[in-house]
Computed example of a mutant assay.
Amino acid sequence: MSEYRHVVRKWVKPEDLNQHGALFGGRLLQWVDEEAAIVAVTQLGTVDVVTRHMSAIDFSARADRGDLLELEYRVFAFGRTSITLSCRVENAVTGAEVLTLERIVFVAVDREGLPLAHGRTEATVGTERLRARIG
């Protein structure tokens, strides 16, 4: 499989903080899941995907107000109806790894929410698969 890498950056703002003044873990997981869904959509060429699984979640460092986080995604594997990604979150200010998810699995679904074969086997760097379904 060709090497695919998708990076997005998030800035930790006051509204993202928990009662201890650090980034709220739920907010980070929201960012991770949302961007992972975007990766899955562009790779599979359909907006009809659902999160099926996330591997163990272990926050290894904190992020504070003003920190810039880099969320890096890689395609791990394509299944018949699924795509498996990995995600590593690093604090660009401190260089510390904040979170790593070894596996995030998305499944393509039909109108009834049942798994649907997608036919993809290789990663793409663009959004052409998504545009192809419209055209």
Rank of each mutant, 00 (worst) to 15 (best):
T81I: 04
D33R: 12
R62Q: 12
S60C: 05
E34K: 06
V8F: 02
T124F: 00
G66I: 05
V89K: 07
F76T: 14
Y4Q: 07
E112T: 03
H20K: 01
A22S: 13
V50A: 15
G26S: 04
A22K: 14
S55R: 08
A40I: 07
R9N: 09
G26L: 03
A108G: 03
R5C: 10
S2V: 11
T84P: 00
A117R: 15
T94G: 02
L99V: 07
R80H: 10
G113A: 09
F76G: 11
E3F: 08
D33E: 15
T51W: 00
V7I: 15
S55P: 03
T124L: 09
Q19W: 00
E112S: 13
A22P: 00
R27P: 04
I83L: 11
A22Y: 03
M54I: 14
T100H: 15
L101Y: 00
S82H: 02
L101N: 08
T127I: 12
V125Q: 13
N91R: 03
G126P: 04
A117M: 09
K10S: 05
E90T: 15
R5V: 13
V12P: 11
L71A: 09
R120D: 02
D64C: 04
V75M: 01
T81C: 05
L101I: 14
R62A: 12
A36H: 08
P14H: 11
I83A: 08
